[in-house]
Design a protein around this nucleic acid. Structure first.
Length: 366
DNA sequence: AGTGTAATAT
DNA sequence: CATATTACAC
């Protein structure tokens, strides 16, 4: 959608290219804190081209430009690719494995205006403090911290749709470290801002975070048996505090408590469906089978916290083993309103039924 | 120190 | 009203 050519090509000519670069630069300049290097790079690119231009003005259309075009464009391309993590994650959620409504979320997200998404204005860097930005070379930083909370107080260059107000988005995982290491979810904690006894910045429980939470919860056998600390540890989210988890847990419990609303949908899918009963876990885990299932479209009033029922109606509820991806088309801007579901667990005395099930032990991610 | 819950704040 | 933080009791 951007009219601006990303690369120099021979048809274009230096002037145009430079112009394009300059425009680019303008854009970047708006976010000096976030794109310090980009700015430099572009600036440099412009310089280079100008030099080239002045050097070869006359022989313009000869192959004198080859060098420049190649170097510049290539270099730039490379750099851009390396340093400006464009959320290509959308295509390859590093997550998945079992459940995951990930794709949904991501895809819905990419609806945001390109100029925004492309540059990741979303993520949390905004250092709480006013300005600073020691022009560090923190480009490669993997873990960023910083409250993800300040939306963006910028002149809205492009008077885009108002939706640009999503304050909290986690910086997901490190973009440039594809496969390998840390897949940790890092959440900004403006932490030690010696704010004078100010209230702590609100932690925003993004979907991802919540997902982690659920995941942990599931491993711990449901919200009723899990304790904040355990959860926190399982989540392995940097900067997340006990209290925050506690709080979230409290809320979660509250929600789950009063939403007996669960019904399995017996319909549509030929696939087996399962019943989400309540979270009932049989502590004697031992070797037994704990199964978790994902509830497909559960309709909760809020839709956020899924499942839970209250008590096992005499009969033990058994959940269908196989997972089912829930395919729920989501609307773009509902951020927290995704249907989450807590996998639950159920244990049935009958060996037969449970045996086939997966055992979810530990999960790598989060 | 952790946990659960209620009171408050946003 | 929902959600997150803080206070308090155990």
């Amino acid at each position: 959608m951007v009219p601006i050519p990303m690369q120099f090509n021979h048809k274009m000519g230096f002037h145009d290219y430079i112009q394009a670069l300059q425009e680019e630069k303008k854009k970047i300049q708006v976010f000096p804190r976030d794109l310090p290097l980009s700015l430099e790079l572009v600036t440099q690119a412009i310089e280079n081209c100008k030099q080239q231009l002045s050097g070869i003005t006359t022989e313009y259309n000869l192959n004198g430009e080859t060098e420049c075009s190649e170097q510049t464009s290539m270099e730039e391309g490379r750099v851009l690719e390396e340093f400006i993590p464009i959320k290509k994650r959308a295509l390859t959620p590093d997550y998945d494995e079992d459940d995951d409504d990930y794709d949904e979320q991501h895809s819905s997200r990419k609806m945001k205006s390109d100029w925004l998404t492309s540059v990741q204005l979303w993520n949390p860097s905004p250092p709480p403090a006013k300005e600073e930005v020691p022009r560090k070379t923190n480009v490669l930083e993997v873990k960023r911290s910083g409250g993800a909370f300040h939306p963006f107080q910028r002149e809205e260059i492009a008077a885009e749709k108002g939706n640009a107000s999503e304050a909290c988005k986690e910086s997901t995982t490190s973009p440039q470290v594809p496969a390998t290491s840390s897949t940790e979810l890092v959440v900004g904690t403006s932490s030690k801002r010696y704010d004078k006894g100010q209230r702590k910045q609100r932690r925003c429980w993004s979907q991802e975070l919540h997902k982690c939470f659920l995941h942990a919860l599931q491993q711990l056998g449901g919200s009723d048996t899990a304790t904040p600390k355990q959860i926190r540890e399982l989540m392995k989210v940097d900067g997340l505090t006990n209290d925050e988890v506690k709080s979230h847990l409290q809320k979660f419990r509250l929600h789950t408590r009063r939403s007996p609303v669960i019904h399995n949908n017996a319909n549509t899918q030929s696939t087996p469906m399962f019943l989400v009963g309540n979270i009932y876990v049989q502590p004697q885990v031992a070797t037994t089978t704990t199964v978790s299932g994902e509830s497909a479209k559960i309709t909760t009033p809020t839709g956020i916290y899924a499942p839970v029922a209250i008590h096992p109606p005499t009969t033990t509820t058994v959940i269908k083993p196989k997972f089912q991806k829930l395919e729920l088309s989501e609307n773009s801007n509902s951020e927290e309103r995704t249907n989450h579901s807590e996998g639950i667990i159920v244990h049935s005395n009958s060996p037969a039924s449970s045996s086939s099930t997966h055992n979810i032990t530990t999960s790598p991610h989060c």
